[in-house]
Design a protein around this nucleic acid. Sequence first.
DNA 1: CATTATACGAAACATAATGTTTCTGTCAAT
DNA 2: ATTGACAGAAACATTATGTTTCGTATAATG
Lengths: 121, 121
Amino acid sequence: MFPDILKRLRKNKQKTQKEMAEFLGITRQAYGHYENGSRQPDLSTIEKLADFFEVTTDYLIKGKERNVTDTDLSDDEKKMLAFFKNPELNLFFKEMAQSKEEQLEEMRQIWEIIKKRGLTK
Amino acid sequence: MFPDILKRLRKNKQKTQKEMAEFLGITRQAYGHYENGSRQPDLSTIEKLADFFEVTTDYLIKGKERNVTDTDLSDDEKKMLAFFKNPELNLFFKEMAQSKEEQLEEMRQIWEIIKKRGLTK
DNA sequence: CATTATACGAAACATAATGTTTCTGTCAAT
DNA sequence: ATTGACAGAAACATTATGTTTCGTATAATG
C-alpha cells in the first residue's frame, strides 16, 4: 500500500527518484526500494517524506486519511463529552482545556495522589 | 520523542512490557528497546501499536494530536473535544468522570490554586 | 529478615534488515 | 544509431534489529 502512494505523490510533485534520494541523503536505488516495496524507510525518513509531501504519516503508512468526526467517538469519549457538558462543571473544565501543559501535568500528578488517598483511607 | 509517548500510552492502559511484547509477538526486551529509544519498530509494528492504543501513527511518531475537524460542534465543544482527545489525558479524565464528588471538589480547589500561581509567577 | 516474584534495563551476540554498487532495460531526443 | 535521463534487479557490504543472558529495584510473602 505504502509504495504506490509514495510513487504517486512523487509524480504529482514532478520529482525524480534521484531528486528524492538527494533530499533524503541516500542513493537513488535505496529510495527506489521504497517505491517498489522491497525495503521500508525508518521513522525519521517517514517523517521527512510526510513533511515533504505535506501529508500525514498515517496517509503514507496506511493510505487512509483520518478525519475525525463526532461519529468516530468511542463510548468512553461520548461519556466524557456528556460529563464535560454538565453545567456545574463546565467552567472548571473549560478553563482546564485552555490551560498550559505544565499546569495540566501538575494536575495529573495531584490527581494520582488524590486517587491513592481515596483508596487507602 | 516517540519512546516517551509509547511508555505513557502503555502505562495509561495499565500494561506491562511483557504484555505488549506478547501482543506484538516479540520478546519483552525487544519491546523495551522501543521505549528507551535504542531501537525503532518497523512500519507494521507501528501500525499495530497505533491500533492498540487507538491513536494515529502521527501521534506515535511525532507526538502530535489528532486533527479534529468536527463541524457539528460549537467552538467551545470543539476545543474541549480536541483537548480530551489527547490520548495521554484519556485515562486521567476517564477516571475523573467516574470519581466521587468529594474528590472532584478537591480537584476544583487545587485547580484554583494552580491557576493563581500560574498568573503570578 | 530472607525469599520469591514481578517489572525493567543493559551488554553481547546472532540474525535480519537496509543501503550501496553494479549491471540491465526503456524511452526520448538528436 | 547514439547519447543521456530514468528506473528496476541482483549481489554484496553495512547497519539495524531481536534474542539471550545477566543484573537491579521493588513489592509481596513466609
